[in-house]
Structure formats: C-alpha cells, structure tokens
Computed example of a mutant assay.
Amino acid sequence: MPESAAPPRADRAVFGVVFLMLFAFSYSEQLVSELFPSSGDDGHMAWRITVIAVDAVVLGVVGLMKRAVTRADGDVPRLWGWWWTGVVILIGVDALRLIHLESIRVDVLTATVYAAAMGATMAVSLNADPLTLFSSARRVALPVDWARVRAIVPLVVGAWLCYLAASAYVDFFDVDTARALDPAIEAQVSDLTVSEQMSVLSQLCQGAISPVFFQQVVGVIPVLLLALGVEFNYFRRTLTDAAQRAVTAATVTVLAAGLVGALSTLPWDGQGCGDVLSGWHEYFAFLLAVQAVFTGLATLVWLLVASTPDDAAGTGPVNRDAAAGG
C-alpha cells in the first residue's frame, strides 16, 4: 500500500512518534522541574529519577507505535538494534545527570549526544534507517527511509539548540534575579517619595532575559513561516508520506508555539517590580522561541543543501532488502 494511502491508524502512530519524541520527551525535564520543584541533594535525586521514569514511559509508548508503523509499511520487524541502542543512550544520559557535573563542555557534549540519540530513535521508530543520512548507496536503495530521515533533520537540529539554550539559561543568565520585593525592602521603599519609589523599583527587579530578545523573535518567526510556505513551497512538497506530514505539522507547531511564547511576554517590559515575568514563564518562552527560530532556519538551510525532488526520493518503491537494518 502506498504511504500516501496509509490507514488512519498508521498515520496516528507516525504522528504520535514525532510529537511524543519532540515535545513530551524533549521537554520532560523542564515539565517535571516545574511540576515537582526540588531542593537539596535528596530532592535533586528524586526529581531526576522522576525524569528517567517519565522518559522510559514515553519511549515505551513510542516503541509500541514503531510496531504499528512497521506493520503499516508491510515490512518485517527491522531496526530494533538501532532502537534499543538509542533508548539505552537516552536513559543513560538521564542517569548520568544524577551526578552534579558543573561544566559547560559536559553540557554541550551531553546535549549533542542526547539530540543525536533522540533523532536516531525517532528515525527508526518511523521505520527508517538513520544511516541513509551518511550513505548515498543506502539513500538510493531505501528511498522511503531517506525521505523520512531527511524530514526530521531540522527538528533534531532545533531540539539540539533548545537543549543548549536550556543549559545556557542556567549557566550564563542570572536566573536568581529579583523578580519581586521581599517585605523588608518593600517597607523601606514605601517610606520614599513617589518619584524615588519609581526610580528604585525600576532598578531592583528585572528578568533574566532581555525583553528585546522576545520582541525580535516576534518579527523573525512570521518571516520564517512565509519563507517556508511561499518561497520554498515547503507545505505542498512535504505532504506525500505520513512521516513527512507529521514532521510538517510538528515544524509548524514548533514555530507557532515559539511565536505564542514570545507574544505572551510583550505585556511585561522586564524592568521594575510588578512588571517582570515569572521565572517559569520566561524560561519556557525562551526555550520555545529558541527552538522555533533555529528549527525554521535549519529547515530553510536543509531544503537548500540536501533537498531532493519527492518523486526521486520520497515516493518511489520501498526496497528494504537492498540494505539491511539493525
């Protein structure tokens, strides 16, 4: 059965793989940290174990969806070696983070390994051989695999830079900046004249991220959407295969979420007590904005550098036996 005529259940499995890996898995650490804030070594350990448990559940569900995608392709079970390798690496990195390692190099290394393993796991869960990214012979032998792997590359790049942004937010920005007055200082300020109060309050509280950043993002993301939709015919060319449709929907969702996150910060100017974003609001808006901008840029660059006409590499017959999977 052609991919474009795949049954609805298979389409749901494909969409589930992409959205679970990109959002539920990638943001599990941030969501758990906000839902279950912790302090001290014991709290840190319990919080990290919760992240590992959540990630394991998400990967288990993705594994079930991989079976559904394989059956819809009419294929024999394949690439499970790749899948388990990706899962072991992802859970291993989660476990490594149980140890406090304060180093920028370690953060960059773990983010890079994590993103690569996440991308490989997503690819094989879509029943696609990730080695097609590096082998022209495999791309010729496995055109459907190549179309699916090619489609997810910009999402993986955007996720990787989002991981780096999460580390940078903690390492380089003043996340402990005062966002509200404590009672003692508030009492002292209340004794000042109105003009003095305004001057003091404008200096005491501020956010960790400059409001100018979010203002610029609000202007950049719509331009990226227009460039993708009009100049490159991105949305028309990526609707033939279920995986391509899922990635297209995920790309638009990432860009829209980043735009909404940036827009949600505009009512606050980031200066002065009572006019500063809360920590969680600023953090998630920053991550969504970074992921959206770099996913859009990566998609544009990837279309220019590595795009192949769909009739040559995305809709041809599947030749699974030409290159054996793991």
Rank of each mutant, 00 (worst) to 15 (best):
P317Q: 11
A227Y: 01
A257K: 11
G81F: 08
I99R: 12
R179I: 00
A123L: 08
V106F: 12
R67E: 11
V140S: 12
L109Y: 06
A292L: 09
V200W: 08
I221D: 02
E282R: 00
L101W: 09
T85M: 15
Y163H: 15
P154K: 03
V140Q: 14
L287P: 05
A324N: 07
T308S: 11
A322G: 15
G81T: 08
D269Q: 15
W82H: 08
E29W: 04
A289E: 05
F294T: 12
F235K: 04
R148P: 00
L126H: 00
C205R: 04
L201Y: 00
D311W: 05
L303P: 00
G274E: 00
R78S: 06
A208C: 06
G92W: 06
V14K: 07
G207A: 08
G86Y: 01
T193F: 03
V124L: 03
T238H: 14
V290T: 12
Y169D: 05
M65S: 05
L300A: 05
L259I: 13
M45A: 11
M1K: 07
L288D: 09
A246D: 05
M1L: 09
A313L: 12
L96Y: 10
A178C: 12
W47R: 15
S307W: 13
E282V: 03
S39K: 07
S28Q: 04
D171S: 11
V175F: 13
S103D: 09
V217F: 09
Q271K: 11
M122R: 02
F23P: 01
A324C: 08
G314S: 07
A322C: 06
A120W: 01
Q271I: 15
S39N: 13
D11W: 14
V290E: 09
D321L: 14
H44S: 12
G63S: 10
G326C: 04
Y163S: 07
V212G: 07
A322Q: 11
V170T: 12
A116D: 05
A53E: 08
L98G: 15
F235A: 10
T295K: 04
T238A: 12
V212T: 14
A313K: 10
S39V: 13
A289H: 00
S190V: 10
A151W: 02
E3Y: 02
G314H: 00
P8Y: 07
P143F: 02
V140G: 05
L277E: 02
A243E: 04
A243W: 00
G81M: 07
G63Q: 03
T265A: 11
G43E: 06
F294V: 12
A180P: 07
P309V: 13
R150I: 01
A298D: 04
T248C: 07
A246Q: 02
A180D: 10
I185H: 10
S307H: 15
L255C: 00
